[in-house]
Design a protein around this nucleic acid. Structure first.
Lengths: 129, 129
DNA sequence: GCCGAAATGAAAACGGTTGTCAAAATCCGC
DNA sequence: GCGGATTTTGACAACCGTTTTCATTTCGGC
Protein backbone atom coordinates (compact mmCIF):
# COMPACT_ATOMS: atom_id res chain seq x y z
CA UNK A 1 0.00 0.00 0.00
CA UNK A 2 1.51 3.22 -1.06
CA UNK A 3 -1.44 5.52 -0.34
CA UNK A 4 0.26 7.15 2.63
CA UNK A 5 3.54 7.26 0.87
CA UNK A 6 1.95 9.04 -2.07
CA UNK A 7 0.30 11.47 0.31
CA UNK A 8 3.68 12.26 1.82
CA UNK A 9 5.16 12.66 -1.61
CA UNK A 10 2.35 15.00 -2.63
CA UNK A 11 2.82 17.14 0.43
CA UNK A 12 6.48 17.39 -0.36
CA UNK A 13 5.77 18.35 -3.94
CA UNK A 14 3.56 21.20 -2.80
CA UNK A 15 6.40 22.59 -0.72
CA UNK A 16 8.99 24.84 -2.21
CA UNK A 17 12.16 24.09 -0.35
CA UNK A 18 13.42 21.45 1.95
CA UNK A 19 11.10 20.30 4.67
CA UNK A 20 11.85 18.33 7.76
CA UNK A 21 9.97 15.15 8.50
CA UNK A 22 8.22 16.89 11.35
CA UNK A 23 7.27 19.76 9.07
CA UNK A 24 5.71 17.39 6.61
CA UNK A 25 3.89 15.65 9.40
CA UNK A 26 2.56 18.91 10.85
CA UNK A 27 1.40 20.09 7.44
CA UNK A 28 -0.39 16.89 6.67
CA UNK A 29 -2.20 17.03 9.97
CA UNK A 30 -3.17 20.62 9.27
CA UNK A 31 -4.74 19.51 6.04
CA UNK A 32 -6.71 16.93 7.92
CA UNK A 33 -4.69 13.90 6.98
CA UNK A 34 -4.87 11.10 9.47
CA UNK A 35 -1.31 9.95 9.55
CA UNK A 36 1.22 9.25 12.22
CA UNK A 37 4.69 10.64 12.60
CA UNK A 38 6.13 7.16 12.38
CA UNK A 39 4.52 6.60 9.01
CA UNK A 40 5.81 9.91 7.71
CA UNK A 41 9.32 8.91 8.65
CA UNK A 42 8.90 5.54 7.02
CA UNK A 43 7.43 7.06 3.88
CA UNK A 44 10.22 9.58 3.59
CA UNK A 45 12.84 6.92 4.01
CA UNK A 46 11.18 4.79 1.37
CA UNK A 47 10.98 7.74 -1.01
CA UNK A 48 14.58 8.60 -0.36
CA UNK A 49 15.61 5.02 -0.98
CA UNK A 50 13.72 5.05 -4.22
CA UNK A 51 15.35 8.29 -5.28
CA UNK A 52 12.07 10.18 -5.42
CA UNK A 53 13.21 12.74 -2.89
CA UNK A 54 16.44 14.47 -2.02
CA UNK A 55 17.67 14.21 1.51
CA UNK A 56 20.22 16.31 3.24
CA UNK A 57 21.23 17.02 6.77
CA UNK A 58 21.09 20.50 8.15
CA UNK A 59 23.94 21.69 10.28
CA UNK A 60 22.02 20.82 13.39
CA UNK A 61 21.58 17.25 12.35
CA UNK A 62 18.02 17.33 11.16
CA UNK A 63 17.14 15.46 8.00
CA UNK A 64 15.31 17.52 5.43
CA UNK A 65 13.58 16.25 2.35
CA UNK A 66 12.57 17.67 -0.97
CA UNK A 67 10.55 16.27 -3.80
CA UNK A 68 12.71 15.80 -6.82
CA UNK A 69 11.04 15.61 -10.20
CA UNK A 70 13.78 13.75 -11.95
CA UNK A 71 16.55 11.68 -10.56
CA UNK A 72 19.00 14.09 -12.12
CA UNK A 73 21.91 14.97 -9.98
CA UNK A 74 22.26 18.49 -8.73
CA UNK A 75 23.40 20.44 -5.72
CA UNK A 76 21.97 23.17 -3.60
CA UNK A 77 22.78 26.72 -2.83
CA UNK A 78 21.13 27.53 0.45
CA UNK A 79 20.69 30.91 2.07
CA UNK A 80 21.85 30.58 5.62
CA UNK A 81 19.39 33.18 6.79
CA UNK A 82 16.11 32.56 5.06
CA UNK A 83 16.69 29.05 3.83
CA UNK A 84 15.93 29.92 0.24
CA UNK A 85 17.27 27.17 -1.96
CA UNK A 86 18.53 27.27 -5.51
CA UNK A 87 19.34 24.15 -7.44
CA UNK A 88 22.65 24.34 -9.16
CA UNK A 89 24.26 21.97 -11.56
CA UNK A 90 27.99 21.59 -11.35
CA UNK A 91 29.42 19.35 -14.02
CA UNK A 92 32.85 20.62 -13.05
CA UNK A 93 32.36 19.39 -9.54
CA UNK A 94 31.14 16.02 -10.69
CA UNK A 95 34.23 15.56 -12.76
CA UNK A 96 36.45 16.83 -10.00
CA UNK A 97 34.98 14.39 -7.52
CA UNK A 98 35.46 11.49 -9.91
CA UNK A 99 38.99 12.58 -10.53
CA UNK A 100 40.16 12.97 -6.96
CA UNK A 101 38.48 9.71 -6.12
CA UNK A 102 40.14 7.70 -8.83
CA UNK A 103 43.46 9.41 -8.19
CA UNK A 104 43.40 7.77 -4.79
CA UNK A 105 42.15 4.43 -6.03
CA UNK A 106 38.59 4.92 -4.89
CA UNK A 107 35.66 3.54 -6.82
CA UNK A 108 31.89 3.94 -6.72
CA UNK A 109 32.36 7.57 -5.99
CA UNK A 110 29.55 9.68 -4.69
CA UNK A 111 29.71 13.12 -3.25
CA UNK A 112 27.75 15.68 -1.35
CA UNK A 113 28.14 19.35 -2.05
CA UNK A 114 26.26 22.05 -0.29
CA UNK A 115 26.93 25.70 -0.84
CA UNK A 116 25.83 28.14 1.80
CA UNK A 117 25.67 31.88 1.55
CA UNK A 118 23.64 34.92 2.34
CA UNK A 119 21.21 35.73 -0.40
CA UNK A 120 20.88 39.21 -1.85
CA UNK A 121 17.76 40.20 0.03
CA UNK A 122 19.02 38.88 3.32
CA UNK A 123 22.34 40.66 3.05
CA UNK A 124 20.46 43.84 2.14
CA UNK A 125 18.27 43.36 5.18
CA UNK A 126 21.34 42.79 7.32
CA UNK A 127 22.92 46.03 6.15
CA UNK A 128 19.70 47.91 6.73
CA UNK A 129 19.19 46.47 10.20
CA UNK B 1 42.13 27.79 30.79
CA UNK B 2 42.94 25.78 27.78
CA UNK B 3 44.48 22.77 29.51
CA UNK B 4 41.52 20.56 28.83
CA UNK B 5 41.11 21.92 25.38
CA UNK B 6 44.72 21.09 24.62
CA UNK B 7 44.21 17.61 25.98
CA UNK B 8 41.27 17.13 23.68
CA UNK B 9 43.27 18.47 20.79
CA UNK B 10 46.12 16.11 21.61
CA UNK B 11 43.83 13.14 21.73
CA UNK B 12 42.46 14.09 18.38
CA UNK B 13 45.91 14.47 16.93
CA UNK B 14 46.83 10.98 18.02
CA UNK B 15 43.84 9.60 16.15
CA UNK B 16 44.04 8.81 12.50
CA UNK B 17 40.62 9.53 11.14
CA UNK B 18 37.53 11.27 12.27
CA UNK B 19 36.41 10.65 15.81
CA UNK B 20 33.12 11.38 17.44
CA UNK B 21 32.93 13.45 20.56
CA UNK B 22 31.99 10.39 22.54
CA UNK B 23 34.92 8.50 21.08
CA UNK B 24 37.30 11.19 22.17
CA UNK B 25 35.72 11.23 25.60
CA UNK B 26 35.97 7.46 25.97
CA UNK B 27 39.57 7.44 24.87
CA UNK B 28 40.56 10.19 27.25
CA UNK B 29 38.95 8.34 30.12
CA UNK B 30 40.77 5.18 29.11
CA UNK B 31 44.03 7.06 29.36
CA UNK B 32 43.10 8.14 32.84
CA UNK B 33 42.12 11.70 32.02
CA UNK B 34 39.67 13.21 34.42
CA UNK B 35 37.39 15.05 32.10
CA UNK B 36 33.68 15.25 31.59
CA UNK B 37 31.71 14.68 28.46
CA UNK B 38 30.41 18.22 28.61
CA UNK B 39 33.91 19.61 28.56
CA UNK B 40 34.87 17.46 25.62
CA UNK B 41 31.94 18.83 23.69
CA UNK B 42 32.80 22.37 24.64
CA UNK B 43 36.45 21.88 23.75
CA UNK B 44 35.59 20.39 20.40
CA UNK B 45 33.26 23.22 19.61
CA UNK B 46 35.87 25.76 20.58
CA UNK B 47 38.49 24.02 18.49
CA UNK B 48 36.12 23.84 15.56
CA UNK B 49 35.31 27.52 15.93
CA UNK B 50 38.99 28.31 15.94
CA UNK B 51 39.58 26.22 12.86
CA UNK B 52 41.92 23.83 14.63
CA UNK B 53 39.75 20.83 13.85
CA UNK B 54 37.58 19.74 10.99
CA UNK B 55 34.00 18.86 11.72
CA UNK B 56 31.61 16.93 9.60
CA UNK B 57 28.36 15.16 10.09
CA UNK B 58 28.07 11.49 9.43
CA UNK B 59 25.01 10.24 7.64
CA UNK B 60 23.41 9.33 10.92
CA UNK B 61 23.72 12.82 12.27
CA UNK B 62 26.71 12.40 14.51
CA UNK B 63 29.37 15.08 14.52
CA UNK B 64 32.86 13.82 13.96
CA UNK B 65 36.06 15.75 14.46
CA UNK B 66 39.57 15.55 13.16
CA UNK B 67 42.70 17.42 14.07
CA UNK B 68 43.82 19.62 11.28
CA UNK B 69 47.43 20.74 11.15
CA UNK B 70 46.87 23.96 9.35
CA UNK B 71 43.79 26.06 9.04
CA UNK B 72 43.98 25.65 5.32
CA UNK B 73 40.80 24.75 3.60
CA UNK B 74 40.46 21.29 2.18
CA UNK B 75 37.95 18.53 1.69
CA UNK B 76 37.78 14.87 2.43
CA UNK B 77 37.64 11.70 0.47
CA UNK B 78 36.22 9.09 2.76
CA UNK B 79 36.06 5.36 2.22
CA UNK B 80 32.54 4.30 2.92
CA UNK B 81 33.68 0.91 4.15
CA UNK B 82 36.73 1.38 6.29
CA UNK B 83 36.46 5.09 6.97
CA UNK B 84 39.93 5.80 5.66
CA UNK B 85 40.19 9.49 4.96
CA UNK B 86 42.28 11.38 2.49
CA UNK B 87 42.54 15.13 2.52
CA UNK B 88 42.09 16.64 -0.88
CA UNK B 89 42.46 20.18 -2.03
CA UNK B 90 40.11 21.39 -4.69
CA UNK B 91 40.80 24.91 -5.86
CA UNK B 92 38.46 24.28 -8.74
CA UNK B 93 35.66 23.54 -6.35
CA UNK B 94 36.36 26.63 -4.30
CA UNK B 95 36.12 28.78 -7.37
CA UNK B 96 33.04 26.98 -8.56
CA UNK B 97 31.28 27.51 -5.24
CA UNK B 98 32.14 31.20 -5.27
CA UNK B 99 30.92 31.48 -8.79
CA UNK B 100 27.57 29.78 -8.44
CA UNK B 101 26.98 31.72 -5.26
CA UNK B 102 27.66 35.12 -6.74
CA UNK B 103 25.74 34.23 -9.88
CA UNK B 104 22.69 34.02 -7.69
CA UNK B 105 23.51 37.10 -5.66
CA UNK B 106 24.74 35.23 -2.63
CA UNK B 107 27.55 36.54 -0.49
CA UNK B 108 29.69 35.17 2.33
CA UNK B 109 29.79 31.88 0.57
CA UNK B 110 30.90 28.76 2.34
CA UNK B 111 30.55 25.23 1.21
CA UNK B 112 30.85 21.67 2.32
CA UNK B 113 32.10 19.01 0.02
CA UNK B 114 32.50 15.39 0.96
CA UNK B 115 33.49 12.73 -1.48
CA UNK B 116 32.68 9.16 -0.64
CA UNK B 117 33.91 6.06 -2.35
CA UNK B 118 35.21 2.60 -1.83
CA UNK B 119 38.96 2.55 -1.43
CA UNK B 120 41.18 0.18 -3.38
CA UNK B 121 41.71 -2.33 -0.61
CA UNK B 122 38.07 -2.41 0.36
CA UNK B 123 36.89 -2.95 -3.18
CA UNK B 124 39.48 -5.69 -3.54
CA UNK B 125 38.21 -7.26 -0.34
CA UNK B 126 34.66 -6.99 -1.62
CA UNK B 127 35.53 -8.80 -4.84
CA UNK B 128 37.39 -11.47 -2.92
CA UNK B 129 34.58 -11.97 -0.43
C1' DG C 1 44.25 33.85 51.89
C1' DC C 2 40.22 36.09 49.59
C1' DC C 3 37.03 37.59 45.96
C1' DG C 4 34.91 37.56 41.48
C1' DA C 5 35.08 35.43 37.04
C1' DA C 6 35.59 31.65 34.28
C1' DA C 7 35.80 26.66 33.68
C1' DT C 8 34.24 22.21 34.89
C1' DG C 9 31.28 18.15 35.04
C1' DA C 10 27.26 15.25 36.75
C1' DA C 11 22.90 14.89 35.77
C1' DA C 12 18.80 16.26 33.64
C1' DA C 13 16.58 18.12 29.66
C1' DC C 14 16.05 18.23 24.83
C1' DG C 15 14.82 16.92 20.16
C1' DG C 16 14.94 14.27 16.24
C1' DT C 17 14.71 9.67 15.07
C1' DT C 18 13.85 4.75 15.56
C1' DG C 19 11.83 0.66 17.68
C1' DT C 20 7.82 -1.79 19.76
C1' DC C 21 3.67 -3.89 19.46
C1' DA C 22 -1.17 -4.20 19.23
C1' DA C 23 -4.91 -2.82 16.31
C1' DA C 24 -6.58 -2.03 11.77
C1' DA C 25 -6.46 -2.55 6.90
C1' DT C 26 -5.35 -5.41 2.97
C1' DC C 27 -4.67 -9.43 0.29
C1' DC C 28 -5.42 -14.17 -0.99
C1' DG C 29 -7.59 -18.39 -1.76
C1' DC C 30 -11.89 -20.14 -1.42
C1' DG D 1 -18.53 -12.41 0.76
C1' DC D 2 -15.49 -14.94 4.41
C1' DG D 3 -11.54 -16.44 7.32
C1' DG D 4 -6.94 -16.32 8.09
C1' DA D 5 -2.22 -14.83 7.04
C1' DT D 6 0.32 -10.74 6.03
C1' DT D 7 1.30 -6.08 5.83
C1' DT D 8 0.66 -1.36 7.24
C1' DT D 9 -0.34 1.78 10.51
C1' DG D 10 0.40 4.83 14.47
C1' DA D 11 0.51 5.93 19.62
C1' DC D 12 3.92 5.61 22.64
C1' DA D 13 8.23 4.66 24.61
C1' DA D 14 13.05 4.02 23.99
C1' DC D 15 17.28 5.71 22.08
C1' DC D 16 21.20 8.51 21.48
C1' DG D 17 23.90 12.34 20.60
C1' DT D 18 23.91 16.83 22.09
C1' DT D 19 22.92 20.91 24.98
C1' DT D 20 21.58 23.14 29.12
C1' DT D 21 21.56 23.71 34.01
C1' DC D 22 23.64 24.71 38.05
C1' DA D 23 26.43 23.78 41.96
C1' DT D 24 31.28 23.14 42.60
C1' DT D 25 36.05 23.87 41.56
C1' DT D 26 39.81 26.39 39.77
C1' DC D 27 42.28 30.49 38.34
C1' DG D 28 43.94 35.28 38.29
C1' DG D 29 44.66 39.33 40.59
C1' DC D 30 45.27 41.56 44.90
Amino acid sequence: MTTRRDAVHDTLRKSEGFRSAQDVYAEMRLHGAKIGLTTVYRALQALADGGQVDVLRTDDGESVYRACATGSHHHHLVCRRCGRTVEVAGPAVERWAEMVGSEHGFTEITHTVEVFGTCASCSAAAKAG
